[in-house]
Design a protein around this nucleic acid. Structure first.
Lengths: 178, 178
DNA sequence: GTCTATACCAGGATAGAC
DNA sequence: GTCTATCCTGGTATAGAC
């Protein structure tokens, strides 16, 4: 049985994934973690601090693997295949929900902005390598990130439309000028 | 002084814009509308129903103008200029927040999905006209919508990054094969 | 239709036993 | 470190006067 701090972080991520940021409370987190609600406050002081810790964890846990796979990429198509794996894990959905909850919440905004930059740096480097000088790689990395985050929103209300849009991105990636 | 139903709808939109869906409560809406909290329930029965009504309103109000401007478009650049106007009004931000709140909320999901389709249909028609058969216009309309919604999330946590990404989309629109 | 007052409940947070 | 029990606040919703 892993230590309680880790179970609470995992429970938070799972709760956000399933119920969205609005449905993420001390009680729902504790239920997902299989512990008592009081432990949220014993270990993290507040729900907000736990959510911030979960934000950091969901980013840092996958980052080494993410960077390693990016380094081996040969095409934009590979990039979208990587996204398929990450999407299945639901990490992007968690990040999208946290960003939505960050509107009007400076503390959560700072935490998610840090997570976003952590993903963005290696992604930008990879796009610069793949695209050379043919396109504005820096801005494209950010636009691509935004598009994939937006897809998580669309998926929440209309999964079929999200699938169609993702397919279009795949096709577009093979049609960019080179 | 406009009628109370309308003031409540306007107050809801304004509240979501400023405080996000998580900060949108019967009390905050009533404060924005300048009326008493009890009137939310008298006129709409529940906060949820009011939010759904606001979702419909924020979509339908701008739709005629939106469609008219789309019909006159000559290039993808015109499209992003139109987006600049809509973004300034904050309607897209409201829709993004509603979609985020719709995760795990079937009723709100249905309402926002309907709004999304209302925007999407004329946008798809315009892209089909502009792109002819050069690209998959249907899927691109959906991908573009997702990207712009995602930008609203990024903007909440890191406005500078959102601006960079939008600039990249502008540049990309002039680099698509034709 | 609009207000004040209030019932009710869920969520955040703390106290204290173990 | 973990539990049960509890407090308090703020959010939803209703009752009843005007």
């Amino acid at each position: 049985m892993p230590d309680t701090r880790q179970r609470l972080i995992d429970g938070t991520i799972e709760t956000i994934r399933q119920h969205g940021i609005a449905g993420t409370t001390a009680r729902s987190i504790a239920a997902a973690a299989g512990v008592t609600q009081a432990l949220v406050f014993y270990h993290f002081g507040s729900v907000q601090e736990l959510v911030k810790a979960a934000c950091l964890a969901v980013t840092q846990d996958r980052l080494p693997l993410f960077e390693e796979r990016l380094a081996r990429m040969r095409s934009l198509g590979d990039l979208l295949a990587l996204h398929t794996d990450e999407q299945a894990r639901g990490n992007l959905r968690v990040l999208a929900q946290m960003m939505a909850g960050a509107r009007g919440n400076p503390q959560l905004a700072a935490a998610t902005a840090a997570a976003l930059r952590l993903w963005l740096a290696p992604l930008r480097a990879t796009l610069e390598r793949l695209l050379a000088d043919r396109l504005d790689a820096g801005g494209l990395a950010e636009a691509l990130c935004a598009a994939l985050l937006g897809l998580e929103l669309v998926d929440a209300v209309d999964p079929a439309t999200a699938t169609t849009a993702l397919t279009a991105l795949h096709r577009l990636s093979t049609n960019l000028p080179d």
